[in-house]
Nucleic acid binder design. Structure first.
Lengths: 198, 198
DNA sequence: TGATAAACGGAGGGTTCCTCCGTATATAAA
DNA sequence: TTTATATACGGAGGAACCCTCCGTTTATCA
């Protein structure tokens, strides 16, 4: 099906530029939110605006690429936590991690948010990663009988995004975020399981 | 302190235009999100861009005004529900209402979200209304012993915004939203109260 | 009916988005 | 090495948008 492999090596300058653009964009987005001027990013990177647009056809594309890796790390943490903690603890720990992580980078929150808004491309890039991570955690918890069997990954995801987004709001947000995580945990516990009484 | 009351009646055309701008803006925001062109709004309204800017010094101002009333209605519903339902039921019903209501108008979600993001003016306009509504509901529930006494209004608010924002995402979002509401309700129930067993 | 404070409208300067295309260069073949 | 060319680069430029400024119009009040 694939036509004979392309003959040429990708040009080195191209790769370099792409890399550097992503790095600059990451900082810019983190510092100024998702509305930074793309021309600004190109300028700071030291390339022409045309170069930026050749690598990333539009703003969403660059956002998606920027935070694909980050989301990957977050998703990876789920498996690690499960290795070292009982399922329910792992779930709680991961949820806190999620809130911290996303809260620190608002772009990601608005990206995850836009799950709804039509910019599906963004979600398509990283949504499944997160969903799978949550699903993994939930499945283990269910296997343990620690949580109700009808809990859906997306349910938690939706709530967490909201919490993460409002993170860093005022003083006390951190405590608030932890409280919400605990409320969610309490809410999905299996009510008639032994642990529920805790 | 106030200087002698102004002598002139406000001009009729001014009020008319302001009203019409708000109405058009409301539809435009609902249909296209918070990034609609203000010139477009002025155009559709049939006034010059200058007129729009005289009435609303910037985009945030117009958003704030547009959704101030809506939020007011939502807040009012809390009291009504409390009149006709037991506290916990009222709370659940109101939360569902919140999700539906905000979900239908993305602007409001992103406005509420921006609670965090620095655009505090937006939140200042309507945030307290919502917070008070939730506080009222929670207080009644606490008085009944139906929920844990440490539940904070903002906690629920944060989670709800996330759910609302992702509302209308894919098929099944509605069911998902209801599930999350129930998870939250379960999470804030007073565990050792009589109702908890339900 | 006039005077005038108030409101209107839109031109215009600045910024950003994204496209297009002539120029430069890294790669591969000679 | 040299040459040919596919590939990438850079930035000018048209369109849309933001918001300001100010000359013109008009609703109010005497």
């Amino acid at each position: 099906m694939t036509p004979p492999a392309p003959i040429r090596k990708p040009r080195a300058d191209s790769q370099r530029n792409r890399e550097k653009l992503l790095s600059v964009a990451k900082d810019a987005f983190a510092a100024q939110g998702p509305d930074v001027s793309l021309e600004e990013i190109a300028r700071r990177t030291g390339v022409g605006i045309g170069t930026l647009y050749r690598h990333f056809p539009n703003r969403d594309a660059i956002i998606a690429d920027v935070y694909r890796r980050e989301v990957g790390q977050l998703a990876g943490a789920a498996a690690e936590l499960l290795d070292s903690h009982p399922p329910l603890d792992a779930l709680r720990a991961w949820m806190r991690l999620f809130v911290d992580y996303i809260g620190a980078k608002k772009i990601m929150a608005s990206a995850l948010n836009s799950l709804a808004g039509g910019t599906t491309e963004l979600y398509a890039a990283s949504g499944p990663l997160i969903t799978n991570a949550i699903a993994l955690l939930l499945d283990r918890c269910k296997a343990d009988g620690a949580i109700r069997p009808d809990a859906e990954p997306m349910d938690l995801m939706m709530a967490l995004v909201g919490v993460a987004y409002n993170t860093s709001a005022g003083p006390g947000w951190q405590a608030a975020a932890l409280r919400v995580v605990d409320i969610l945990i309490a809410g999905i516990k299996q009510m008639d399981s032994p642990q529920a009484a805790l």
